[in-house]
Design a protein around this nucleic acid. Sequence first.
DNA 1: CGACACCTTGAAGAGGTTCAAGAAATGTGG
DNA 2: CCACATTTCTTGAACCTCTTCAAGGTGTCG
Lengths: 240, 240
Amino acid sequence: MNPQAIQIACSNCNLRELCMPIGLSEHDIDRLDNLVAVRKKIKRGETLFTNGELFTSLYAIRTGFFKTFLVTEDGRDQVTGFQMAGEIIGMDGIVNDLHTCDAVALEDAEVCVMPFEKIEEISREVASLQSHVFKIMGREIVREHGVMLLLGSMRADERLAAFLLNLVQRLHERGFSQSELVLRMTREEIGSYLGLKLETVSRTFSKFVEEGLIEVKLRHVRILDTEGLQRAVNQQTTCH
Amino acid sequence: MNPQAIQIACSNCNLRELCMPIGLSEHDIDRLDNLVAVRKKIKRGETLFTNGELFTSLYAIRTGFFKTFLVTEDGRDQVTGFQMAGEIIGMDGIVNDLHTCDAVALEDAEVCVMPFEKIEEISREVASLQSHVFKIMGREIVREHGVMLLLGSMRADERLAAFLLNLVQRLHERGFSQSELVLRMTREEIGSYLGLKLETVSRTFSKFVEEGLIEVKLRHVRILDTEGLQRAVNQQTTCH
DNA sequence: CGACACCTTGAAGAGGTTCAAGAAATGTGG
DNA sequence: CCACATTTCTTGAACCTCTTCAAGGTGTCG
């Protein structure tokens, strides 16, 4: 909960390729090491920021797993994303200097706190950092386009297949298995993200198991047939 | 189709408050006037950029109305947004220097072409421009969160009501009526954006008319009961 | 004026939701 | 360390919303 005093330089961080621009001069690297003010530990179930809170910083996830979600006045809620190590969280606060969603840790986590004012300041001096920040925000925009496609035009099994493939791919980029993953979220949270009810998520898992595409033991999923899942994503609803 | 040679300075543009940062020194304003390379006219039905095309510039819409949409290999398509005067389009290309969606004019339009390299360069010198660009991208991220909520957790009538209220609000900000609007898009395009079939959109319009919330004559919509529409957005599906 | 795109409406059907019950895992406190 | 409460997950059956298919109407543009 309390910020850590100990600071490990970005230049030594094993997630550097994910968070930071590459190909920097030594001088620029020194500048970037000032970017992270402190690190912060968040226990499972705890909140990193909430809707309405003052926005001050972006957070680079060092370890752990988060969900971000919106809650409307009438009690509806919508998971807007799941974030893992190396990803940047908090950009929802940039427009109005207020966070517009909640971020909760789904497992014990640690983040690097990067005050946004500092990001802006150093960005003006280090062109490659500026470009990097633009790209990170651009990536988020494109990711959300993909979610819109998923929510707007896919059926339940297509959505879940796309979700699993996306998760396992991101985990693979981080050195984990291509075919095995542990879900950090409940069926309900998956359903909220995919615009489905938890029962539908559960049934669709069962359907995939019957079809021999995956093995499921609660949160443990093993992908047996990646191409089969890929086909499930593209199976298309209309055909006339 | 051809870029215009004539250049009207941003500092004189009547859309300045929408596109540009405010409270600049004279010197900074001069810098910003270099931002817009050329202007470009796009006729109704024509394309501003397409998926796969090299990304070079962001575009500020001066006049007209656009839709952006994704097309998948299997022929599905998803409208990701409708953009009007004063809005910035093209941010989908920033991550990979390639556009990832198509932008088509739904009515004759004119845009200011802002080469992204120039945006980056001037941003490094003019802090308020940098901050402005971050905010524009941040706004797009938050807008898309809202669309995710809409697609993931609202029913047909809630979606359409939210859509109409959003459109009329944005038009009102631009000096148009609070209660009357002309749709620039077909029922099918609305449906694609809202994750509904065109028949559902049409039926929902008819339902709103029956309920006395709106009047509809094809593309002309008059809102009779704004609060009623607002209630329709929040009507909530589950209640146990 | 005719062709075409767009919109509306009806009826049948499908996919996903809702409600309900039970099983399996996890966490807690004694 | 075990028993119990709680949370999470699975599965079934009925229901409902939205889709699909179809036909006819309306407006627009060459």
